[in-house]
């Protein structure tokens, strides 16, 4: 069913709508054009404080760096599975604390003494993937001194609840990739299963004749996984704006 794919022109239209709303809500998104072409990307930066540590606290390491193949194995957890995962999580956090204490004297650059947090600059880009006909989220983070965070540090700065969710999520993987327009290393949420998780949402919207901004809806699913919050106001606003006249043919 082709209606689950996003065409490039629609992507641009969705981005324009998102930008307008972002302006009203002061959410900080901007459009960065690529010189000499129609292409470009949505960009937002955010400052956040986080405790960073490069300790491999997380049993997840394998699946972070191994990409695709692993994630598809995680189906939604049943009750028992969830309980087990929780205990793994607790164990890893404990391990983190212990490691922190043991290595405190180590002068490894990444070590931050337990409990102290640091301000990090996050940068998020939304781009169109012509291979998958979906939006893709690219992101990176650095310290205020300009040091880029590694993949491990990135994971460790994600809230444990979301780490758990990512681990169990069948549709996301984080890998380091080259930014296709800038040529610099970024982290990327792989788009290969986007169509799959967007399909029911799009279908429901279509059945109920609700207006839907593909990019916004997609972002509200993937953003929070990597610390990017999408205010609820985007959605309420969308309904108000679009309800009086809706002419789009199905």
């Amino acid at each position: 069913m082709s209606s689950c794919l996003l065409e490039e022109v629609t992507f641009h239209r969705c981005c324009q709508m998102l930008l307008q709303q972002s302006e009203q809500l002061r959410d900080g998104w901007s459009w960065e054009p690529v010189q000499g072409s129609q292409e470009g990307y949505l960009r937002k930066t955010a400052l956040k404080s986080a405790v960073i540590s490069s300790n491999p606290v997380w049993d997840l390491q394998g699946s972070i760096s191994d990409s695709g193949s692993h994630t598809s194995c995680h189906s939604g957890p049943d009750e028992q599975g969830e309980e087990k995962d929780q205990s793994v999580l607790v164990a890893s956090v404990d391990a983190d604390a212990t490691n922190g204490a043991i290595h405190d004297d180590n002068d490894g650059v990444c070590m931050v003494s337990e409990g102290s947090s640091q301000v990090l600059q996050y940068e998020y880009h939304i781009m169109y993937s012509c291979s998958y006909s979906t939006p893709v989220l690219y992101f990176r983070a650095s310290t205020l001194e300009g040091r880029s965070l590694s993949l491990e540090e990135m994971w460790n700065s994600v809230h444990p609840n979301f780490r758990l969710r990512l681990q169990n999520s069948p549709f996301t993987t984080i890998t380091q990739q080259e930014h296709p327009l800038l040529g610099q290393p970024f982290f990327m949420l792989h788009p290969c299963r986007t169509e799959e998780f967007m399909r029911p949402v799009l279908q429901a919207a279509q059945d109920q004749h609700r207006p839907l901004n593909y990019v916004l809806t997609w972002l509200s699913v993937v953003g929070p996984l990597v610390g990017l919050d999408v205010p609820l106001k985007y959605c309420t606003q969308l309904h108000l704006a679009a309800s009086p006249s809706r002419t789009e043919p199905d």
Binding site: S65, S67, G68, S150, Q176, Q184, P185
Partner: peptide
């Protein structure tokens, strides 16, 4: 860091 992707193991190349 700003130019190259890290390649800690062959599994990264495989991915």
């Amino acid at each position: 860091d700003l130019d190259l992707l890290h390649c800690p193991s062959n599994s990264v190349i495989e991915a």
